[in-house]
């Protein structure tokens, strides 16, 4: 069984809410990304989403856009990200890893895609791939890699069904109409939408886009199977002056993990 499926099913059975954490590979550099990933796991993160930087990230707000730009200025390549995951797997063979990025990056690296499971990549979340398409429809298939799709507040019931059918791993519920890191989350609307979504799927539902603080995370995890934290972490990593400042980020993640399981 795929690590994502295993971990999330296990959490669901034990009534544990999952914490998904996002960072951009190569920001500020690959060594830091690697140590941050291990730090995330020690802080209680259940799934790591590794952002694949793209020149034209249309779904990202200013925080993650800038991180993509910084990473590309550091010459981050797809091959470099593969090495990052291989290095991570030397010490950690359990934590699920999802690559999150844009379709053109994956299409251009189809060869690597067929080796994803060997390398230790468990799933992909392709922001600009239509959710009703399977990976095979997109021409990038790997039977052992799950395809995570987004469902948004504007997704119709009909599409929700199609997307749930084509997805595996978990469903990522986009908590707002907007780009990543926006601030207009409406907790009550999110909850009722997540409950509707759960009627269409047995897959765990993770909610993200714009979740920053403990109150939001706690409230949303009352209904969702977990939360995704992205922009807040990316900004904190950017603000850290030295690697010892990462400790604050790990403390924050531990607190989130504990409030969602209160």
């Amino acid at each position: 069984m795929n690590r994502i499926e295993k971990q999330l099913v296990e959490n669901k059975n034990n009534n544990i809410k999952s914490l998904v954490a996002y960072l951009v590979a190569g920001d500020p550099n690959m060594d830091d990304t690697l140590s941050l990933m291990h730090g995330f796991v020690d802080a209680g993160v259940d799934v790591i989403e590794v952002g694949v930087p793209f020149s034209d990230p249309i779904a990202e707000g200013p925080i993650i856009q800038s991180a993509h730009d910084r990473s590309l200025a550091n010459k981050t390549s797809f091959e470099g990200i593969i090495d990052l995951i291989s290095n991570f797997r030397k010490k950690n063979t359990n934590t699920p890893i999802v690559l999150m990025g844009y379709l053109n990056s994956f299409l251009k690296n189809q060869k690597a895609f067929s080796r994803f499971d060997d390398i230790g990549i468990d799933g992909v979340l392709i922001v600009d791939a239509p959710g009703e398409y399977s990976l095979k429809d997109l021409g990038i298939s790997n039977a052992n890699v799950v395809s995570i799709s987004l469902v948004s507040p504007t997704t119709t019931k009909e599409r929700t069904k199609k997307i749930c059918n084509a997805s595996s791993g978990f469903i990522y519920y986009v908590t707002l109409k907007g780009v990543t890191g926006s601030s207009n989350v409406d907790l009550e609307e999110i909850k009722s939408n997540v409950i509707d979504l759960q009627k269409n799927t047995d897959l765990p539902v993770m909610a993200g886009f714009g979740i920053k603080n403990k109150e939001q995370a706690e409230s949303i995890s009352k209904v969702a199977d977990g939360v995704v934290i992205g922009s807040y972490l990316v900004e904190s990593i950017f603000q850290a002056k030295k690697t010892t400042d990462y400790k604050k980020i790990y403390n924050y993640l531990s607190e989130i993990k504990s409030v969602i399981n209160k």
Binding site: D128, A129, L150, V151, T154, I163, V174
Partner: peptide
């Protein structure tokens, strides 16, 4: 061609 956009826009395109 096709429609390769973030999910939030799919309904608007339809």
């Amino acid at each position: 061609g096709g429609k390769f956009v973030p999910e939030t826009l799919m309904e608007a395109l339809d």
